[in-house]
């Protein structure tokens, strides 16, 4: 993650909670990834590593906060800060992995200031659990493991997404924000096909929220994520980069 930009993963289907986060958080300081299930967050964390703060709705289905915490800590050695979003009125919830503080539903600005203070206490660089920023599972499933198809798809990713990201940078610089949104919308499935959730999330944000000069960090982060994938592909598939 970009050092200046803190990252919160919020697992909830409570649209009021998501709206409150989006209202109160400064998008230049904090990026928010929202998931409607614990499983979605687990997959995401497997790919990008720990966030600066993970907030889990207590009774979300099918995997509640307690079960998600159990999975993350026991199976993935998750060590980041976790809060539980609950309407139960208790200040903390006890699990087999310890007690976790509660953010009460219906929270307001002072409560979120407290959440943000947790972020500033949490300055340690997170260790990525999965060093690879991409996965070939989707392409492999789609093609029944056809290596030529997978290779060709990676080549297309490398060339087309690289070109589109350069265009996004250029258009952003020229304040052509509508075209930035369109291009982000166009390349989102490419990140999804390589199961890179961070790239997909950023594309989604650029495609479906107001783009203006405040999104510079996101554009930068998207490029960095692409370059991270490209670096990894260079190591894993050097033939992709051979010029004829």
């Amino acid at each position: 993650m970009n050092e200046a930009l803190k990252h919160i993963i919020l697992v909830t289907t409570d649209s009021d909670a998501v709206a409150a986060f989006n209202t109160y958080l400064n998008p230049n300081a904090v990026t928010l990834s929202n998931f409607a299930s614990g499983m979605g967050a687990i997959q995401y964390i497997k790919q990008i590593g720990e966030a600066d703060l993970l907030i889990l709705e207590e009774n979300i289905k099918p995997l509640g906060a307690v079960q998600t915490i159990h999975y993350l800590i026991d199976n993935m050695n998750y060590s980041g800060s976790i809060l539980i979003l609950s309407d139960s009125g208790v200040s903390e919830i006890q699990t087999d992995e310890g007690a976790f503080e509660v953010l009460k539903k219906g929270f307001d600005k002072p409560d979120l200031d407290w959440v943000l203070s947790l972020l500033s206490e949490n300055k340690e660089q997170r260790v990525e659990l999965n060093s690879k920023p991409y996965s070939l599972s989707y392409l492999s499933d789609l093609s029944d493991g056809d290596e030529a198809f997978i290779f060709e798809s990676l080549k297309i990713f490398n060339e087309s997404v690289g070109k589109n990201i350069s265009e996004i940078e250029e258009l952003f610089g020229k304040e052509h924000y509508k075209e930035v949104s369109n291009l982000a919308h166009n390349i989102k499935p490419s990140f999804e096909m390589l199961e890179n959730n961070l790239g997909s999330t950023i594309c989604d944000e650029l495609a479906h929220t107001q783009v203006d000069s405040s999104k510079a960090e996101q554009v930068d982060l998207l490029k960095k994520e692409y370059l991270k994938i490209q670096e990894c592909l260079k190591e894993d598939f050097p033939d992709l980069f051979k010029t004829v």
Binding site: S153, S160, N186, S190
Partner: peptide, 13 residues
């Protein structure tokens, strides 16, 4: 479709 990765996947399948 204008995303070449999506095109290639659809075409292949």
């Amino acid at each position: 479709e204008d995303n070449p990765m999506v095109v290639r996947s659809l075409e292949f399948k």
